[in-house]
Design a protein around this nucleic acid. Sequence first.
DNA 1: CAGTATCCTCGCAGATACTG
DNA 2: CAGTATCTGCGAGGATACTG
Lengths: 165, 165
Amino acid sequence: MGRKRFGDMNCGIAQALEAFGDWWTLLIVRDAFFGARRFGDFETNLGIAKNILSDRLQRLVEHGIFSKQPVAESAQRFEYRLTEKGEALLPVLTTLRDWSDEWVFGKGHEPVIVKDRATNRRIPRMRVTDVDGRPLGRRDLRTEPGPGASQQTLRLLERRRQGPL
Amino acid sequence: MGRKRFGDMNCGIAQALEAFGDWWTLLIVRDAFFGARRFGDFETNLGIAKNILSDRLQRLVEHGIFSKQPVAESAQRFEYRLTEKGEALLPVLTTLRDWSDEWVFGKGHEPVIVKDRATNRRIPRMRVTDVDGRPLGRRDLRTEPGPGASQQTLRLLERRRQGPL
DNA sequence: CAGTATCCTCGCAGATACTG
DNA sequence: CAGTATCTGCGAGGATACTG
C-alpha cells in the first residue's frame, strides 16, 4: 500500500519530513544554497535522474520552498530559487552538518556497520577518504558555496558562525 | 536499480541522510526522546509494521544511535536507548520543529498544494486541525515528553530554551 | 538545454503467520 | 511481548527516448 503519509500528524517533525523528508530533496536544497539555479545545475551536481529531479523541483515549488522564474525576459528557460521559506532551511542543513562532523566524521566516529545485501552479513562500511585513500578529516568535508550563491545566502552562511556546509 | 546511496558522498548532510534520512527513522528517534524504549512502544506509537520497525531499530543500533540492552538481568526482553550520539540528534529535531512552526503552521503559512495521484491535478492539502475541525495554532502542536523520558533527555530539552518537540 | 513520457526494476513497506 | 520470516504490491527511482 505504499508509504504512509505524515501530513496529518500533529507534529512539526512529521510535517517537515512530509515536505523534504525523502532522499533527494534536502540535497537539492543544499545545492541551491551553493548557487545551483538551473535544472541542469542540479542534474549534473547530483547525478539524479531527470524525471525525479523534475518531480522534486515541482514539489519544492508547491511547498513554497523554491520559486520558479523565467531566467531572462520572456524566455523559455527557468530558474529555481530559494524563497524565504527555503532560506529558512539553512539551520536544518547546518545542524545536520554539525552532527555528522562530530559523530560520523569526528572524534566520536566508529566505523559504521551495514548489511551486505547479497550475503546478508554485517560489514563495516567504507570510510570516507580522498582519491588517494587517505582518510578525510572534518575540515576537508566542508563544501564551499559556489559562485552562483546569492548575497543573501552568503550573508546567512556568514552569520552566527554557521560556516560553509 | 534501487536507490542511490549517499554514504560515499563527501558531505555531512549526505552522511546524515544515509543514517536517518528515510521516512520512519527520525520519527522513531523522536519517540525515543519521549520515552519510548521497548519494541512495542514504538510500534503502537507510530503504527509502523513490525518488520520495518525491526529493520530500522537494527539500523539505528548499527549506526550507534540506539543501544540495545536487556531490560532486566538475563531477560529475553530488550530495550532501545539513545546513545550519546543519538542524544546529539536533539538539535536536528528541534530545528525541524522550529522550521515547521514558522513556515508550515505559523505566520508564513500558505496552504500547501499537492498533486492528486488519480487525477494528477493540484489540490490544496488539508490543513492541520483538531478533531472538531478547528485549525491548530503552533502552541497546540508541541508534544510533551512522556513519563519514560530520561533525566538526561529532560535536561537536554530544558537547556537552551529548546522546549518540547 | 530543459524538461516530459514511458518502461522497467527493485526497495520499501504493509499484512500476516510463526516462534520463543 | 518481541521479534523473525515470508508473501505481496505499490511506487520511488533509474534509464532512455522524445519534444520544443
